[in-house]
Design a protein around this nucleic acid. Structure first.
Lengths: 214, 214
DNA sequence: ATTAATGTACGAACTAGTGAGTTCACGTTA
DNA sequence: TAACGTGAACTCACTAGTTCGTACATTAAT
């Protein structure tokens, strides 16, 4: 008779598990080597299944890459949606949002690399994804509310644009990770040094508040 | 008798010209497709010479790519060295330096893309270049002097680090170009819009001065 | 028995790099 | 001054190795 739905050790014939396994391995491979540099055979080999399954479940290299992008973006969007911005003072909310981005990016180097890679490809794959093209952004909504409350209270400048603020946060958080290799090669500075990390985390908040309250 | 050293139209057998031609075409190709995506055959075809000459002059794909990187970095370093920071007020000098970076990056999209690509490759090629590894940075010297003068005059905060300031400038100027594709795909905002461009250029200076004088 | 899921082997197209020979400019010699 | 020698610049065709994708066979579940 043998166990009906294999309890744990066997894990044969498990659609979800196979898909998830492929996605996980593909994320690492694409983030590591880029879209062109990644090898389908290599991904297949690191998987517990075969190349045939990649084509069976995803269709091809490009569709697999798009699925990887979708998973990565949906993860950070879900995280952003969790921040409860309503119960925070405007200043504190801005700092909280900036630190969330700071921490998420540092904890997910694969995401940072995928975004860089996708920009090298001029976001053509995001544009081709029905899930991602025009995906709503919870962080931006929170930012908009915070800026409005801060302005209503006379504490924030009137001309601050939510998307501009988001861009400043992103540029700072993305740059220190995405460009850390050329930075290290040329200036000899390690962006991941714990002391510097804390300093930068505080510095970003300071800069934002200084700008918004000036 | 025929002209000895071909006056202009013929241009056969010209070492320098051939090398320069290859470098120019290779810069566009690498910036466009990335290191792995770039095709030596494609570069050769867009050149007025042949693939064999690429190997003759540069040795291989990787050495050609390194030569491209060296040319791009030396160009911006030369530009930075031209700024005469000594005769400017600290605030004005900071703004001038930031605007120089802002303008250079916008005028050289190939450079921005090459830097992104090189970071995806973890700066391994820069590290392999004798010219680039540890290349001195004129902009950083100017920045250091400006911060010192500003602090001595009691106008700048004492704890401002030159490399941190440089990073803020770079992150802002690089991000708005390097990540403009994903930004456009997700937020629908065009970073190259002239009005927004001017706004961002001013905004960066404001943010820096606000931070330094707080 | 039928179908979903999986594995194996293969092929057509591509890609970096090379082997081998050619052309040209120029200096040297007969 | 004309034939010759030489090395740099150049051309063409080829190869050894990849790489994405698929045809076909097989196994498990219902």
């Amino acid at each position: 008779m043998t166990a009906p739905s294999s309890s744990d050790a066997e894990r044969q014939r498990d659609k979800d598990r196979t898909r998830a396994d492929i996605l996980e391995v593909a994320t690492r491979e694409f983030a590591d080597k880029g879209y062109t540099g990644a090898r389908v055979d290599e991904i297949a080999e690191r998987t517990s299944t075969t190349k045939r399954m990649i084509y069976y479940y995803f269709g091809g290299k490009e569709q697999l890459y798009i699925a990887v992008l979708e998973r990565a973006y949906l993860a950070i969007r879900a995280l952003e949606a969790e921040v409860d911005v309503e119960h925070l003072e405007p200043e504190e909310g801005i700092r909280r949002l900036a630190e969330l981005t700071f921490d998420h990016h540092e904890a997910h180097p694969d995401f940072i690399r995928l975004v860089s890679i996708e920009n090298i490809h001029r976001a053509e794959h995001i544009a081709r994804s029905e899930v991602l093209a025009g995906l709503a952004n919870p962080a931006l909504d929170g930012l908009t509310k915070l800026l409005e409350r801060g302005r209503a209270a006379g504490r924030f400048r009137a001309d601050a644009d939510p998307l501009d603020v988001h861009m400043v946060i992103s540029s700072f958080c993305v740059f220190r990770l995405a460009n850390r290799h050329t930075f290290a090669a040329i200036f000899g500075r390690d962006m991941l040094d714990p002391g510097r990390r804390d300093h930068h985390r505080r510095m970003l908040g300071d800069m934002l508040i200084n700008y918004l309250t000036s």
